[in-house]
Amino acid sequence: MRLKIAKQLLAAAILSAAAQAQVGLVNDATADYVAGYAGSTAGDLDVVSASVAYNPLTDIFHFESTFAAAIGTSPGGLYVLGFDRGAGTGRFAANGLPNVLFDSVVVINANGSGAVNLLVPQPVVSTPFAAGTAVIDGAKLSLDILGSWLPSAGFSKSQYTWNLWPRDGLQPAGFGQISDFAPDSVNAAVQVVPLPGAVWLFGSALAGFVAARRRAFR
């Protein structure tokens, strides 16, 4: 009986570790435009889902997002991914969003070009990337961001948090350009990709524990 329970625990642990690869996906309601936004509502500035995963083995952040319409539908559309690397502040607090914290922003244009901008420490450090670096596939947008472009400002990279806000660049500069936030009012945690062998090591440890328990009850 104990062995059966242990096997069930091991299977659950393996499934749990595998499921970690899906943790961190943010699903966002459609047509939930920011109050006061007067820009394009064609759908490509309306977030449906987004996620950021960090792979410690490659030191790469992988960003993926989906929108309610094909990217490029709105002529002035662009996408801002804010990160809190440990020195984030609530720069939208005056707009009722004190918990959207960031100290760096990744700006992505509708042609896949953009830049990673470190806002602290001053002066701002900008790392541009060429058109096509961000991958656009209909309503989907993805980008691999080198860890060296987002150095720590106090957190380990696995502790970074993020938020995504599309903008309509044809609107007057300022908060009024922002169409949506994902998550809506608080940052999301970066998903950490499990290191190879982590599940196997956990399973081996659990199996060893089960064997020891069996010997103890003989």
Rank of each mutant, 00 (worst) to 15 (best):
L3K: 09
K4V: 05
K7R: 09
K7E: 02
A12Q: 08
S16M: 10
A17V: 08
A17E: 15
A17S: 07
A19C: 04
A19G: 10
A21K: 15
Q22G: 11
V23W: 06
V23A: 14
L25S: 08
L25M: 12
V26T: 14
V26R: 02
V26F: 09
D28Q: 14
A29I: 07
A29Y: 09
T30P: 03
T30F: 08
A31K: 11
A31C: 05
D32Q: 12
Y33L: 06
Y33H: 11
G36S: 07
Y37C: 10
A38S: 15
G39A: 10
S40E: 12
S40N: 12
D44L: 10
L45G: 12
V47I: 15
S49G: 08
A50E: 05
S51I: 14
V52D: 04
V52W: 06
A53G: 10
L57K: 11
D59K: 01
D59V: 03
I60R: 04
H62L: 10
S74C: 13
S74P: 12
S74M: 11
G76P: 07
F83E: 02
G88W: 02
G90N: 09
F92N: 14
A93C: 09
A94R: 05
L97P: 07
P98M: 14
P98N: 13
N99W: 06
N99C: 07
N99S: 15
V100Q: 14
V100Y: 12
L101H: 07
F102G: 14
N111C: 08
N111L: 13
G112A: 12
G112H: 09
G112R: 10
S113Y: 07
A115V: 09
V120A: 06
P121Y: 08
P123T: 08
V125R: 11
V125E: 12
S126L: 06
F129L: 04
T133M: 11
T133R: 12
V135L: 11
A139Q: 10
A139Y: 02
L141E: 01
S148L: 08
S148N: 05
W149G: 00
W149A: 15
W149T: 08
W149H: 13
L150F: 01
L150P: 05
S152W: 04
G154K: 08
F155K: 15
S156V: 14
K157M: 13
K157G: 10
Y160H: 09
T161H: 11
W162G: 07
L164E: 02
L164H: 02
R167E: 15
D168Y: 02
G169M: 09
G169Q: 11
Q171C: 01
A173S: 04
A173F: 00
G174W: 00
G174T: 04
G176A: 15
Q177A: 02
I178M: 04
S179A: 15
N187S: 13
Q191D: 13
V192A: 00
V193C: 01
P194Y: 03
L195N: 03
G197A: 03
G197T: 07
A198E: 07
A198R: 04
W200A: 10
F202N: 10
G203P: 00
S204C: 11
A205R: 01
L206C: 06
V210C: 05
R214E: 00
R215I: 01
R215D: 00
